[in-house]
Design a protein around this nucleic acid. Structure first.
Lengths: 186, 186
DNA sequence: AACTTTATTAAATTTTTTCTTAACAAACTT
DNA sequence: AAGTTTGTTAAGAAAAAATTTAATAAAGTT
């Protein structure tokens, strides 16, 4: 095989991967992951564990960018540091099982959502409580405050449900209820 | 009740709501919704249907901002246009049922994720097919291409599962499997 | 202990995004 | 039909975020 042909074949291979890497980055963008972090994840998805310099090389970006990018991905729980013996460079590997990706990524976000909002509701309801206990508060405002208090109260089950959902992901229960299958539904 | 006291009470009420509006905006931010769109949603969540001018007034922002903001929220399927008779102004209302919010918001994203990535995989696999059919391609590259082809193939079940998950949300099956309850688990 | 290698932090720059004002278009009123 | 009201698009300004280069720190090697 001539070099020319070999280069074409290699380029074609890289292009095929690039298509999917792009689409991964595009869809991660839907969930608030920046394009460049998504791109990094996609690149790591199709590779083995990588050092920061290998990432820099692949993506043509600076090393600090790779450092912060990989940190973000670690923060999403979808990249882990690995240990490659014989080098003192840090190496990192992407979570390649998308089900695990889903579990790690959304579990973290949903738990955070639940915690933050339940906290805020707790504080807001304390404030509203004070208001409602105060006899001299105008009847109209009382009524509004009561309705708002109830609206907050009624939203709590949603956050508890998010917590249950996360638990069911972690226990595997969700995957029993909605089993993975290979039958194309598209 | 004196005006001073009344004003304090009103301010306290508004502050209680603001706490929760902020936390809603903060958590929507986790999923790639900008703070200002999240803030708008939160504001609408605690109000009735609103016109663009009412939003502008509440948030202290320009009308074009409200127009684009509300459009984004409509795009996420979490705000709908409503009809208030007696005015020719458009009115909009937020989805107040967070379970419906969850269903609308994530279903749309997950379906989009599945479609985009399955499309890209389809195209990439065609490219890899050509490469693998070409007898003159170097053995090493063939091997790599084959592994990558399989990696893509193996990721498909995940996207089909996302589609199933969406279907189970829409059918209510998910909520049978992971029932809503009021027991605090935090 | 001085020198290398590697990763992170800081500062500055560039790019992207958001927001506002101004212009426009469309629909309704008189 | 002219004038209003309302919503959207366009252009410019402001703000925010991402990226790079340079500096620093930390760890390992000779």
């Amino acid at each position: 095989m001539s070099n020319q042909q070999g280069d074409n074949a290699r380029a074609s291979f890289e292009q095929a991967k690039a298509l999917v890497i792009d689409s991964i980055a595009e869809t991660m963008d839907l969930y608030g992951v920046t394009r460049s972090a998504g791109n990094l994840y996609g690149t790591m998805y199709f590779g083995n564990d990588m050092t920061l310099d290998e990432m820099r090389e692949k993506l043509g970006m600076s090393k600090p960018s790779m450092s912060t990018g990989v940190k973000k991905l670690q923060d999403y729980n979808i990249v882990k540091q690995t240990f490659r013996k014989g080098t003192r460079r840090q190496t990192f590997a992407a979570e390649k099982d998308f089900f695990q990706f889903f579990a790690n990524f959304f579990a973290k976000k949903w738990l955070r959502e639940a915690r933050i909002n339940l906290d805020a509701i707790h504080k807001a309801q304390q404030e509203l409580d004070q208001l409602l206990e105060n006899e001299s508060v105008d009847g109209n405002l009382r009524e509004e405050a009561l309705l708002t208090y109830r609206q907050m109260e009624d939203s709590k089950p949603y956050y508890y449900w998010l917590q249950k959902l996360v638990a069911s992901i972690e226990s595997g229960e969700l995957f029993d209820a909605i089993p993975v299958d290979e039958i194309k539904k598209q």
